[in-house]
């Protein structure tokens, strides 16, 4: 397995956020985690990236059969995992160019870095125009593209993205998801965390659904899309309606 998460439990102080979750990624595919606010999606990603001190409390995380749980974040990154965080977190007082160079921090091949910089500007033409601007002055969409480009600069094998569509207009959301598919076609495995179910089902190959710190359902996107519960609670499709146009009963989740 490319990335394998086994039974991890993560605590914030004494509160258990993740109740022993397990999942795995296949190389070269897009895997998505869907869930509502507070389900534990971001905590899952932070646990993988080693951004929480002394967490996960229990469980193992294997990347290409190498244990990476509780490792220092910069060592995890050096194995070929890049992270695009929720809320973008670009370096606001560095220029666009400097932000991208930070992304390439661990690389020693200066020439190839310069080439990749050009490559990024082909991916995101808008960034070329902003190259000398401070990242804090960019719009939300541009910052999101910068965050993705910054992650790509490390030449990762796996990119982990946390809600890249957050706070963007529908048009931009479509553009960002288009970019995600393009990156994946170039051979990079993607772990995507989202709330936007419609777009997620369109691009992802495998989908996991998370509620209250555990997975309640998972499977290929094509199959899951037709599941009645998923339709009702994530895609907003109402199946059973009376002639007058309102629902006869409130559907309950069957996965409890």
């Amino acid at each position: 397995m490319f990335l394998e998460v086994k039974n991890i439990e993560t605590y914030y102080d004494k509160i258990k956020i993740l109740n022993g979750i397990s999942f795995s990624l296949e190389e070269g595919r897009i895997t998505a985690i869907l869930g509502n606010n507070g389900a534990g999606k971001t905590t899952t990603l932070n646990s993988i990236m080693g951004l929480l001190d002394d967490q996960p409390e229990k469980g193992t995380i294997l990347f290409q059969d190498k244990p990476i749980h509780r490792m220092d974040t910069h060592k995890i990154v050096s194995l070929g995992i890049a992270y695009v965080p929720e809320g973008r977190e670009v370096f606001e007082e560095l220029t666009v160019r400097e932000n991208l160079m930070v992304g390439a921090y661990l690389r020693r091949d200066t020439k190839a870095v310069a080439g990749d910089l050009e490559h990024m500007f082909d991916y995101f033409p808008i960034l070329r125009k902003r190259i000398k601007q401070l990242a804090g002055t960019l719009s939300g969409g541009e910052q999101q593209m910068l965050a993705i480009a910054r992650a790509l600069m490390s030449r990762p094998k796996l990119i982990i993205m946390d809600e890249p569509s957050l706070g963007l207009s529908p048009l931009l959301v479509r553009e960002i998801f288009g970019i995600i598919e393009k990156i994946n076609r170039d051979g990079i495995t993607i772990l995507l965390v989202e709330q936007n179910a419609q777009m997620t089902f369109r691009v992802a190959h495998t989908v996991y659904i998370m509620e209250n710190g555990r997975f309640v359902m998972n499977g290929p996107a094509e199959e899951l899309k037709d599941n009645a519960d998923v339709k009702e609670f994530y895609l907003g499709v109402r199946e059973i309606e009376s002639l007058k146009g309102y629902q006869r009963y409130k559907r309950k989740r069957t996965w409890k």
Partner: peptide, 24 residues
């Protein structure tokens, strides 16, 4: 310099510096 860039990045956002591979 690269060291200077890493210093400035860590000053602004420690977490982001970490997940870009900087040993903060």
């Amino acid at each position: 310099t690269k060291l200077g860039l890493a210093m400035r990045a860590s000053q602004q956002n420690v977490k982001a510096a970490k997940f870009n591979g900087i040993p903060t």
